[in-house]
Protein backbone atom coordinates (compact mmCIF):
# COMPACT_ATOMS: atom_id res chain seq x y z
CA UNK A 1 0.00 0.00 0.00
CA UNK A 2 1.34 3.42 0.85
CA UNK A 3 4.76 4.03 2.29
CA UNK A 4 5.84 5.54 5.52
CA UNK A 5 6.67 8.88 4.05
CA UNK A 6 3.15 9.30 2.85
CA UNK A 7 1.83 8.58 6.32
CA UNK A 8 4.00 11.38 7.48
CA UNK A 9 2.44 13.61 4.91
CA UNK A 10 -0.99 12.67 6.17
CA UNK A 11 -0.04 13.58 9.69
CA UNK A 12 1.45 16.84 8.55
CA UNK A 13 -1.57 17.86 6.49
CA UNK A 14 -3.90 16.98 9.36
CA UNK A 15 -2.68 19.99 11.23
CA UNK A 16 -3.91 22.43 8.60
CA UNK A 17 -6.75 20.58 6.80
CA UNK A 18 -10.32 21.02 8.04
CA UNK A 19 -11.36 18.18 10.29
CA UNK A 20 -13.17 15.17 8.83
CA UNK A 21 -15.79 15.59 11.47
CA UNK A 22 -16.47 18.17 14.10
CA UNK A 23 -19.16 18.65 16.69
CA UNK A 24 -19.95 21.75 18.72
CA UNK A 25 -21.93 21.64 21.94
CA UNK A 26 -23.57 18.42 20.90
CA UNK A 27 -26.42 17.31 23.16
CA UNK A 28 -28.98 14.54 22.88
CA UNK A 29 -31.79 13.93 25.32
CA UNK A 30 -33.87 10.77 25.02
CA UNK A 31 -37.12 11.13 26.92
CA UNK A 32 -35.53 13.15 29.71
CA UNK A 33 -32.34 11.09 29.85
CA UNK A 34 -29.25 12.99 28.75
CA UNK A 35 -27.29 10.58 26.53
CA UNK A 36 -24.72 13.05 25.25
CA UNK A 37 -24.02 16.46 26.68
CA UNK A 38 -21.95 19.32 25.36
CA UNK A 39 -19.64 17.20 23.25
CA UNK A 40 -17.02 19.11 21.26
CA UNK A 41 -15.34 16.43 19.22
CA UNK A 42 -12.88 16.91 16.43
CA UNK A 43 -11.70 14.16 14.13
CA UNK A 44 -8.63 15.49 12.27
CA UNK A 45 -8.48 14.68 8.57
CA UNK A 46 -6.32 11.62 7.98
CA UNK A 47 -6.28 10.56 11.60
CA UNK A 48 -7.40 7.34 13.23
CA UNK A 49 -9.37 8.51 16.18
CA UNK A 50 -10.18 6.08 18.94
CA UNK A 51 -13.31 6.94 20.82
CA UNK A 52 -12.86 5.40 24.22
CA UNK A 53 -15.46 5.03 26.86
CA UNK A 54 -17.26 2.49 29.00
CA UNK A 55 -20.59 1.13 27.80
CA UNK A 56 -23.29 3.79 28.00
CA UNK A 57 -20.86 6.67 27.85
CA UNK A 58 -22.49 8.11 24.72
CA UNK A 59 -20.11 6.78 22.07
CA UNK A 60 -22.76 5.28 19.83
CA UNK A 61 -25.15 8.20 20.23
CA UNK A 62 -22.38 10.60 19.25
CA UNK A 63 -21.56 8.48 16.20
CA UNK A 64 -25.23 8.28 15.20
CA UNK A 65 -25.46 12.05 15.36
CA UNK A 66 -22.24 12.36 13.34
CA UNK A 67 -23.80 10.23 10.63
CA UNK A 68 -27.10 12.10 10.65
CA UNK A 69 -29.04 9.08 11.86
CA UNK A 70 -30.12 10.97 14.92
CA UNK A 71 -31.04 14.63 15.09
CA UNK A 72 -29.23 16.33 17.97
CA UNK A 73 -31.30 18.03 20.66
CA UNK A 74 -28.80 20.88 20.50
CA UNK A 75 -25.43 21.62 18.97
CA UNK A 76 -23.91 21.29 15.55
CA UNK A 77 -22.38 18.48 13.57
CA UNK A 78 -20.16 18.87 10.57
CA UNK A 79 -19.18 15.84 8.53
CA UNK A 80 -16.63 16.23 5.71
CA UNK A 81 -17.49 19.91 5.65
CA UNK A 82 -21.26 19.40 5.42
CA UNK A 83 -23.73 20.27 8.13
CA UNK A 84 -25.54 17.21 9.38
CA UNK A 85 -28.17 15.88 9.25
CA UNK A 86 -29.25 18.13 6.36
CA UNK A 87 -26.08 17.55 4.37
CA UNK A 88 -26.36 13.78 4.64
CA UNK A 89 -26.83 13.34 0.92
CA UNK A 90 -23.57 15.22 0.29
CA UNK A 91 -21.41 13.80 3.04
CA UNK A 92 -22.53 10.21 3.52
CA UNK A 93 -21.57 8.75 0.10
CA UNK A 94 -17.94 9.21 1.15
CA UNK A 95 -18.53 7.74 4.58
CA UNK A 96 -18.56 4.05 5.42
CA UNK A 97 -19.89 2.99 8.76
CA UNK A 98 -20.51 0.03 10.98
CA UNK A 99 -22.79 1.26 13.74
CA UNK A 100 -24.38 -0.58 16.64
CA UNK A 101 -23.45 -3.97 15.31
CA UNK A 102 -24.15 -5.23 11.84
CA UNK A 103 -27.73 -5.08 10.53
CA UNK A 104 -28.62 -7.57 7.82
CA UNK A 105 -31.54 -9.64 6.61
CA UNK A 106 -31.29 -13.10 8.13
CA UNK A 107 -32.89 -14.81 5.14
CA UNK A 108 -30.43 -13.46 2.59
CA UNK A 109 -26.88 -14.66 2.12
CA UNK A 110 -24.00 -12.43 3.04
CA UNK A 111 -23.41 -11.63 -0.60
CA UNK A 112 -27.08 -10.83 -1.26
CA UNK A 113 -27.14 -8.57 1.77
CA UNK A 114 -24.13 -6.69 0.47
CA UNK A 115 -25.66 -6.51 -3.01
CA UNK A 116 -28.68 -4.82 -1.46
CA UNK A 117 -26.60 -2.18 0.27
CA UNK A 118 -24.39 -1.79 -2.77
CA UNK A 119 -27.50 -0.99 -4.81
CA UNK A 120 -28.10 1.93 -2.47
CA UNK A 121 -24.53 3.26 -2.69
CA UNK A 122 -24.54 6.48 -4.71
CA UNK A 123 -20.90 6.13 -5.71
CA UNK A 124 -21.21 2.66 -7.21
CA UNK A 125 -22.02 2.36 -10.86
CA UNK A 126 -24.57 -0.40 -11.49
CA UNK A 127 -22.06 -2.36 -13.53
CA UNK A 128 -19.48 -2.19 -10.74
CA UNK A 129 -21.69 -3.59 -7.99
CA UNK A 130 -20.82 -7.26 -8.33
CA UNK A 131 -17.09 -6.60 -8.39
CA UNK A 132 -17.25 -4.21 -5.44
CA UNK A 133 -19.21 -6.72 -3.37
CA UNK A 134 -16.75 -9.51 -4.23
CA UNK A 135 -13.79 -7.37 -3.27
CA UNK A 136 -15.33 -6.27 -0.01
CA UNK A 137 -16.08 -9.88 0.91
CA UNK A 138 -12.53 -10.89 0.12
CA UNK A 139 -11.12 -8.02 2.10
CA UNK A 140 -12.81 -9.14 5.31
CA UNK A 141 -12.09 -12.83 4.69
CA UNK A 142 -15.67 -13.97 4.21
CA UNK A 143 -15.29 -15.56 0.78
CA UNK A 144 -16.13 -19.06 1.98
CA UNK A 145 -19.26 -18.04 3.86
CA UNK A 146 -20.45 -15.41 1.39
CA UNK A 147 -23.19 -17.54 -0.10
CA UNK A 148 -24.53 -18.85 3.18
CA UNK A 149 -27.52 -17.32 4.82
CA UNK A 150 -26.77 -14.56 7.27
CA UNK A 151 -28.98 -16.37 9.78
CA UNK A 152 -26.29 -19.01 10.27
CA UNK A 153 -23.36 -16.62 10.68
CA UNK A 154 -21.28 -16.57 13.85
CA UNK A 155 -20.92 -13.29 15.68
CA UNK A 156 -17.49 -12.82 14.14
CA UNK A 157 -18.76 -13.46 10.62
CA UNK A 158 -21.57 -10.97 11.16
CA UNK A 159 -19.06 -8.39 12.30
CA UNK A 160 -16.90 -9.04 9.24
CA UNK A 161 -19.89 -8.64 6.94
CA UNK A 162 -20.69 -5.35 8.65
CA UNK A 163 -17.14 -4.25 8.03
CA UNK A 164 -17.44 -5.30 4.40
CA UNK A 165 -20.54 -3.15 3.93
CA UNK A 166 -18.65 -0.16 5.33
CA UNK A 167 -15.86 -0.77 2.81
CA UNK A 168 -18.02 -1.33 -0.29
CA UNK A 169 -16.62 1.77 -1.95
CA UNK A 170 -13.41 3.71 -1.31
CA UNK A 171 -14.25 6.11 1.50
CA UNK A 172 -12.83 9.33 2.81
CA UNK A 173 -14.10 8.62 6.28
CA UNK A 174 -14.86 5.28 7.91
CA UNK A 175 -16.69 4.97 11.22
CA UNK A 176 -16.39 1.67 13.06
CA UNK A 177 -18.43 1.25 16.21
CA UNK A 178 -16.86 -1.52 18.32
CA UNK A 179 -15.50 -3.32 15.25
CA UNK A 180 -13.78 -6.15 17.14
CA UNK A 181 -16.86 -7.07 19.14
CA UNK A 182 -17.20 -10.85 19.01
CA UNK A 183 -14.08 -11.37 16.96
CA UNK A 184 -11.44 -13.92 17.88
CA UNK A 185 -7.82 -12.76 18.24
CA UNK A 186 -7.16 -13.49 14.56
CA UNK A 187 -10.18 -11.45 13.57
CA UNK A 188 -9.12 -8.63 15.83
CA UNK A 189 -5.73 -8.61 14.14
CA UNK A 190 -7.38 -8.48 10.73
CA UNK A 191 -9.50 -5.52 11.74
CA UNK A 192 -6.35 -3.77 12.90
CA UNK A 193 -4.77 -4.48 9.55
CA UNK A 194 -7.83 -3.07 7.76
CA UNK A 195 -7.68 0.07 9.86
CA UNK A 196 -3.96 0.42 9.22
CA UNK A 197 -4.53 0.01 5.49
CA UNK A 198 -7.26 2.63 5.52
CA UNK A 199 -5.04 5.00 7.42
CA UNK A 200 -2.20 4.38 5.03
CA UNK A 201 -4.50 5.20 2.13
CA UNK A 202 -5.31 8.52 3.72
CA UNK A 203 -8.78 7.61 4.94
CA UNK A 204 -9.87 9.13 8.18
CA UNK A 205 -11.08 6.47 10.62
CA UNK A 206 -13.16 6.78 13.75
CA UNK A 207 -13.07 3.65 15.93
CA UNK A 208 -15.05 3.35 19.08
CA UNK A 209 -14.05 0.90 21.73
CA UNK A 210 -14.26 0.20 25.40
CA UNK A 211 -10.76 -1.36 25.32
CA UNK A 212 -7.75 0.89 25.71
CA UNK A 213 -5.45 -1.74 24.26
CA UNK A 214 -7.33 -1.71 20.99
CA UNK A 215 -7.11 2.04 20.74
CA UNK A 216 -3.46 1.99 21.62
CA UNK A 217 -2.78 -0.52 18.89
CA UNK A 218 -4.49 1.29 16.04
CA UNK A 219 -5.08 4.96 16.72
CA UNK A 220 -3.26 8.21 16.23
CA UNK A 221 -5.76 10.23 18.23
CA UNK A 222 -8.05 9.47 21.09
CA UNK A 223 -11.14 10.93 22.68
CA UNK A 224 -12.40 9.63 26.01
CA UNK A 225 -16.10 9.80 26.77
CA UNK A 226 -17.76 9.32 30.08
CA UNK A 227 -21.42 9.78 30.90
CA UNK A 228 -22.04 11.73 27.73
CA UNK A 229 -19.08 14.06 28.10
CA UNK A 230 -15.70 14.19 26.40
CA UNK A 231 -13.29 14.04 29.33
CA UNK A 232 -10.04 13.93 27.33
CA UNK A 233 -9.09 14.36 23.72
CA UNK A 234 -5.88 14.67 21.78
CA UNK A 235 -3.03 12.80 20.10
CA UNK A 236 -2.55 9.35 21.51
CA UNK A 237 1.19 9.66 22.02
CA UNK A 238 0.91 12.88 23.99
CA UNK A 239 -1.83 11.46 26.22
CA UNK A 240 0.09 8.26 26.84
CA UNK A 241 3.39 9.88 27.65
CA UNK A 242 1.98 12.54 29.90
CA UNK A 243 3.11 12.15 33.51
CA UNK A 244 4.50 8.69 33.09
CA UNK A 245 7.99 9.11 34.64
CA UNK A 246 7.42 7.05 37.76
CA UNK A 247 8.50 3.59 38.74
CA UNK A 248 6.64 1.54 41.35
CA UNK A 249 8.90 -0.80 43.31
CA UNK A 250 7.35 -3.40 45.61
CA UNK A 251 9.59 -4.10 48.55
CA UNK A 252 9.23 -4.66 52.31
CA UNK A 253 12.46 -2.74 52.97
CA UNK A 254 11.28 0.75 52.16
CA UNK A 255 13.67 2.59 54.50
CA UNK A 256 16.71 0.72 53.22
CA UNK A 257 15.69 1.37 49.63
CA UNK A 258 15.03 5.06 50.24
CA UNK A 259 18.43 5.52 51.75
CA UNK A 260 20.16 3.73 48.87
CA UNK A 261 18.40 5.88 46.32
CA UNK A 262 19.01 9.13 48.15
CA UNK A 263 22.67 8.31 48.13
CA UNK A 264 22.55 8.37 44.35
CA UNK A 265 20.28 11.47 44.32
CA UNK A 266 17.37 9.68 42.82
CA UNK A 267 14.11 11.21 44.16
CA UNK A 268 11.74 8.67 45.70
CA UNK A 269 9.02 8.46 48.30
CA UNK A 270 7.47 5.61 50.23
CA UNK A 271 4.05 4.31 49.25
CA UNK A 272 2.10 1.37 50.74
CA UNK A 273 4.02 -1.85 49.98
CA UNK A 274 6.97 -0.11 48.42
CA UNK A 275 8.52 2.94 46.77
CA UNK A 276 7.57 5.40 44.08
CA UNK A 277 10.66 6.43 42.16
CA UNK A 278 10.90 9.48 39.95
CA UNK A 279 12.56 8.57 36.67
CA UNK A 280 13.22 12.07 35.31
CA UNK A 281 16.84 11.91 36.36
CA UNK A 282 17.35 8.19 35.97
CA UNK A 283 16.28 5.02 34.16
CA UNK A 284 14.49 1.94 35.39
CA UNK A 285 17.52 -0.44 35.02
CA UNK A 286 19.69 1.98 36.98
CA UNK A 287 17.16 2.18 39.79
CA UNK A 288 16.85 -1.60 40.00
CA UNK A 289 20.63 -1.95 40.00
CA UNK A 290 21.02 0.52 42.87
CA UNK A 291 18.39 -1.26 44.94
CA UNK A 292 19.74 -4.75 44.34
CA UNK A 293 23.29 -3.69 45.16
CA UNK A 294 22.08 -2.18 48.39
CA UNK A 295 20.59 -5.56 49.28
CA UNK A 296 16.98 -4.39 49.01
CA UNK A 297 14.65 -7.29 48.12
CA UNK A 298 12.74 -6.24 45.00
CA UNK A 299 9.49 -8.19 44.51
CA UNK A 300 8.13 -6.34 41.52
CA UNK A 301 8.96 -3.33 39.44
CA UNK A 302 6.52 -1.60 37.08
CA UNK A 303 5.96 1.77 35.55
CA UNK A 304 3.15 3.70 37.07
CA UNK A 305 0.06 3.98 34.90
CA UNK A 306 0.04 6.97 32.60
CA UNK A 307 -2.55 9.70 32.86
CA UNK A 308 -4.67 8.15 30.11
CA UNK A 309 -4.40 4.67 31.49
CA UNK A 310 -5.21 5.82 34.95
CA UNK A 311 -8.18 7.89 33.78
CA UNK A 312 -9.52 5.11 31.64
CA UNK A 313 -8.97 2.45 34.26
CA UNK A 314 -10.95 4.49 36.72
CA UNK A 315 -13.74 5.00 34.18
CA UNK A 316 -14.02 1.34 33.28
CA UNK A 317 -13.21 -0.30 36.58
CA UNK A 318 -15.49 1.91 38.61
CA UNK A 319 -18.64 2.56 36.70
CA UNK A 320 -19.79 5.00 39.38
CA UNK A 321 -17.15 7.61 38.64
CA UNK A 322 -19.23 10.75 38.74
CA UNK A 323 -16.64 13.33 39.57
CA UNK A 324 -13.26 13.78 38.01
CA UNK A 325 -11.85 16.65 40.06
CA UNK A 326 -8.22 15.76 39.45
CA UNK A 327 -8.54 15.55 35.69
CA UNK A 328 -6.18 18.47 35.24
CA UNK A 329 -3.54 16.76 37.28
CA UNK A 330 -3.92 13.59 35.26
CA UNK A 331 -3.71 15.06 31.81
CA UNK A 332 -1.15 17.78 31.24
CA UNK A 333 -2.27 20.94 29.52
CA UNK A 334 -0.31 20.42 26.32
CA UNK A 335 -1.94 17.07 25.66
CA UNK A 336 -5.50 18.29 25.91
Amino acid sequence: MTGFSEQRAVAASAATAPPAARTRGLRKVYRGTVAVDNVDLEVPMGSVLGMLGPNGSGKTTTIRMLLGLVTPTAGEVELLGHKMPDGAALALPDVGALVEGPGFHPFLSGRENLMRFAAAEPLLATSAITTAVGEAIERVGLTKAANRRYRGYSLGMKQRLGLASALLVPRRFVVLDEPTNGLDPAGTREVRTVIADLHAAGTTVLVSSHLLAEVEATCTHVAVLNQGNVVAQGELAALLEAGSANLLVSTPETTLGLDALRERRIPARPVPDGLLVDLTASTAPAVVEVLVRAGVPVHEVRRQRTGLEDLFARLTEDSAVTELPDLDTLIPEEAR
Binding site: E6, A9, V10, S13, M45, G46, L80, G81, A89, L90, P93, D94, M115, R116, A119, A120, E121, P122, L123, L124, T126, V169, P170, R171, R172, A201, G202, T203
Partner: peptide, 26 residues
Protein backbone atom coordinates in the same frame (compact mmCIF):
# COMPACT_ATOMS: atom_id res chain seq x y z
CA UNK B 1 -3.02 13.06 0.15
CA UNK B 2 -6.69 12.91 -0.59
CA UNK B 3 -6.01 13.78 -4.21
CA UNK B 4 -4.63 10.29 -4.63
CA UNK B 5 -7.98 8.79 -3.80
CA UNK B 6 -10.39 7.77 -6.54
CA UNK B 7 -13.34 9.81 -7.68
CA UNK B 8 -14.66 9.98 -4.13
CA UNK B 9 -12.69 13.09 -3.36
CA UNK B 10 -14.55 15.36 -5.70
CA UNK B 11 -16.72 17.22 -3.27
CA UNK B 12 -19.64 18.13 -5.44
CA UNK B 13 -22.30 20.31 -3.92
CA UNK B 14 -24.98 18.34 -5.71
CA UNK B 15 -26.32 15.34 -3.78
CA UNK B 16 -25.24 12.10 -5.42
CA UNK B 17 -27.83 9.37 -5.45
CA UNK B 18 -28.11 5.78 -6.45
CA UNK B 19 -30.44 5.39 -9.45
CA UNK B 20 -34.04 5.01 -8.28
CA UNK B 21 -34.83 2.03 -10.50
CA UNK B 22 -31.87 0.18 -9.03
CA UNK B 23 -33.20 0.85 -5.54
CA UNK B 24 -36.70 -0.26 -6.47
CA UNK B 25 -35.43 -3.46 -8.06
CA UNK B 26 -33.27 -4.23 -5.07
Amino acid sequence: TTADLPATTTTSSRPRRAPLTRLLRS
